[in-house]
Amino acid sequence: MKHSDLIFPALIGAVASARSMTPMASIAAARFLNRRTPGRLVLLDRPLFKYGALAMGAGELFGDKMKTAPDRTVFLGLLARVMSAGIAGAALAPRGREQAGALTAVASAVPLAYITLAGRKRAMARMGQTRSGLIEDALVVAAGAAVVALAVRS
């Protein structure tokens, strides 16, 4: 076992720290392009889950701009990050290492949720909720797409 085998799960966990549904939406998009993940993930082979992951990813991007959007560190926000990071981390881990990939992604997502929230609050104070959210969206969606593209390319 090499520690570098778990770099993609750690990175997708970082993505989940800022946008809980982006990891699953990124993997679903890769599935639509007939790309396979290294780890076994049968859920996103089902159309309902693929479309659902994409819809939830898009919905989160819109919902985050609402004034009533809760912090990502509330219980349900952290729970969504744990679930999404765990599933995506397992999918991006080498076959047979799915459990280690899930744990790595969750271990990355939860503490980074507090750090990304602090950064977002500073950005909101400087430029407002919508503008800071759009910038964060662009960075996080690009990071999610890049991590998944690199993990599934071979």
Rank of each mutant, 00 (worst) to 15 (best):
K2R: 01
K2M: 09
K2F: 10
H3Q: 06
H3M: 06
S4F: 12
D5Y: 12
I7W: 13
F8H: 11
F8A: 12
F8L: 00
A10W: 08
G13C: 09
G13F: 12
G13Y: 07
A14H: 09
V15L: 09
V15P: 10
A18K: 07
R19Y: 14
S20H: 07
M21S: 13
P23S: 14
M24Q: 12
A25H: 14
A25L: 13
S26T: 11
A28V: 06
L33K: 14
L33F: 05
N34W: 12
R35C: 15
R36G: 08
T37Q: 08
T37C: 00
T37H: 05
P38H: 05
P38L: 05
G39H: 09
R40Y: 01
L41M: 14
V42N: 13
V42A: 14
L43K: 05
L43C: 12
L44W: 09
D45Y: 11
R46E: 15
P47V: 08
L48G: 09
F49Y: 09
K50R: 12
Y51G: 13
G52I: 13
G52Y: 12
G52K: 03
G59T: 08
L61N: 11
F62Q: 04
G63I: 04
G63R: 00
D64A: 13
D64M: 12
D64H: 10
D64R: 00
K65S: 15
K67F: 11
T68D: 15
T68Q: 04
P70K: 04
P70Q: 01
P70G: 00
P70R: 03
D71E: 05
D71Q: 00
V74T: 13
F75V: 04
F75Y: 09
G77L: 06
G77V: 11
G77S: 10
G77C: 10
G77A: 09
A80W: 11
V82W: 11
M83G: 10
S84I: 01
A85E: 02
A85Q: 06
I87Y: 12
A88P: 03
A90V: 02
A91K: 03
A91T: 03
L92Q: 04
L92F: 02
A93I: 00
A93K: 04
A93L: 03
A93Y: 09
G96I: 01
E98F: 00
G101I: 02
T104K: 01
A105L: 08
V106R: 05
A109F: 07
A109D: 06
V110W: 11
P111R: 05
A113T: 13
A113K: 01
I115D: 05
I115T: 08
I115N: 02
T116K: 02
A118P: 07
G119T: 02
G119H: 04
G119V: 05
R120D: 03
K121S: 14
R126N: 11
M127V: 15
M127T: 15
M127P: 14
G128W: 07
G128D: 09
Q129D: 15
Q129H: 13
T130R: 13
T130A: 14
R131T: 15
S132G: 01
G133T: 03
L134K: 04
I135K: 00
E136C: 12
A138K: 06
V140I: 15
A142P: 01
G144S: 01
A145Q: 01
V147A: 05
V147E: 10
A149H: 08
S154P: 12
